[in-house]
Amino acid sequence: MKQPSLTIVVPCYNEEEVFPTTLRQLKNTVTRLIKEGYVDRNSKILFVDDGSRDSTWDLIKKAYTEDSMINGLKLSRNFGHQRALMAGLEEASRYSDCVISIDADLQDDISVIKEFVIKYLEGYDVVYGVRKRRETDSFFKRTTAQMFYRLMEKMGLPLVYNHADYRLLSRRALNALLQYKEANLFLRGIVPLLGFKSAKVYYDRKERAAGESKYPLPKMLALALDGITSFSVKPIRLITAIGFISSLISFLAAVYVLVQKISADPVGGWASIMISLWFIGGLLLISIGLIGEYVGKIYEEVKGRPRYILEERLQHFSQEYKRPKQQVGK
């Protein structure tokens, strides 16, 4: 069987501290796979600079000039992790038989990349990297992550538990993924929808080698909200159910007040009325805000703006690869 050409796609944002370590370890991994006959000698590592403000792009350019294994993309500004990853996947789809995506911090164990490729050679189109445990996370992060996956399950989303964006996609799966044109990307929700034969590879997550996490709590919450609102309308239906329940309670309260009036007993005090008003007012504001999230997503989608814009491309070409025109994300 002909060895597949592999591309490892690595989104980068302000990764100057960890980049040398990431570059060295990934090069060693791909070189070893080539020597052992698992992948083709034209396999690549594609770094995608998502508008970094430090010297990340300069380091990528230096690596490109020194090694034909290294390719690079520079986005015109910071578009976000999911869009940067999609830019790399779209680029790699032009010349790769299979693609592995991994974050630049290498907290995901690269030693299992060989297992990813073996699963691909066995006929799997999608291979998920799944964490065995979460001991390295703080109690808060571990608890909220578990709550997130349970919530997604209740919402009917087919997420792979403890899987982020560490995965292998075959050319067929990648081409199917590129047919999804939405601007609001939540790849760990889209990929399971492809429906191709899949497998899981388990690993232990490591500590970050250097630099700071690019996913603080606000970004994690935003990603969770994107996932929920991009794949489920159950929150809207929940609001409708709460509205019916509130109406029923209000009707019962009105009956109670009417009975009190007829029996000449004094009506309840000011405090209970104010509490009810504040509760209903807060509920209305939350409901309007949630509906606004869906309306905002519709607004973003109908404008049809590009998901990303390329500023610069660094590409070592193989014989069968044709130089692409300057592109924007579709």
Rank of each mutant, 00 (worst) to 15 (best):
T31V: 13
T31L: 13
R32C: 01
R32E: 05
R32W: 00
L33A: 09
L33D: 04
L33T: 03
I34D: 05
K35Y: 08
K35C: 09
K35E: 12
K35R: 13
K35M: 12
E36F: 07
G37V: 08
G37L: 11
V39D: 10
D40G: 13
R41M: 14
R41Y: 11
N42A: 10
N42H: 15
N42M: 13
S43Y: 04
K44S: 07
K44G: 06
I45R: 04
L46R: 02
L46S: 08
F47H: 03
D49T: 06
D49K: 01
D49I: 04
D50F: 03
S52G: 06
S52V: 08
S52T: 06
R53E: 12
D54A: 07
D54M: 03
S55Q: 12
S55M: 10
S55V: 05
T56V: 09
W57E: 09
L59I: 04
L59S: 07
I60H: 03
I60R: 00
I60G: 04
I60E: 00
K61F: 00
K61M: 07
K62G: 11
K62D: 14
K62H: 12
A63G: 08
A63S: 15
A63I: 08
A63D: 05
A63H: 05
Y64K: 11
Y64S: 08
Y64V: 04
Y64P: 06
T65C: 13
E66T: 12
E66L: 14
E66P: 05
E66D: 15
E66H: 11
D67H: 08
D67Y: 10
D67V: 11
S68F: 10
M69K: 00
I70R: 02
I70K: 00
G72I: 03
L73I: 14
L73A: 09
L73H: 01
K74W: 04
K74C: 06
L75F: 01
L75P: 02
S76H: 11
R77F: 04
N78T: 07
F79H: 08
F79P: 00
G80L: 04
G80I: 06
G80C: 11
H81S: 07
H81C: 05
H81T: 07
R83N: 13
R83E: 10
A84G: 15
A84E: 03
A84C: 11
L85P: 00
L85E: 06
L85I: 02
M86Q: 09
M86F: 12
A87V: 08
A87F: 03
A87E: 05
A87L: 04
G88L: 11
L89I: 15
L89M: 14
L89K: 03
L89E: 07
L89V: 15
E90Q: 15
E90I: 09
A92V: 06
A92E: 09
A92Y: 10
S93N: 12
R94V: 07
R94K: 14
Y95K: 14
Y95E: 13
Y95R: 14
Y95G: 05
S96R: 03
D97R: 10
C98L: 14
V99S: 10
V99D: 02
I100V: 15
I100A: 05
D103M: 07
A104V: 10
L106K: 01
L106H: 07
L106P: 04
Q107A: 13
Q107T: 14
Q107V: 09
D108N: 14
D108W: 07
D109K: 09
D109W: 11
D109S: 12
I110K: 02
I110L: 08
S111W: 01
S111G: 08
S111N: 11
S111H: 10
V112P: 03
V112W: 06
I113K: 00
I113N: 02
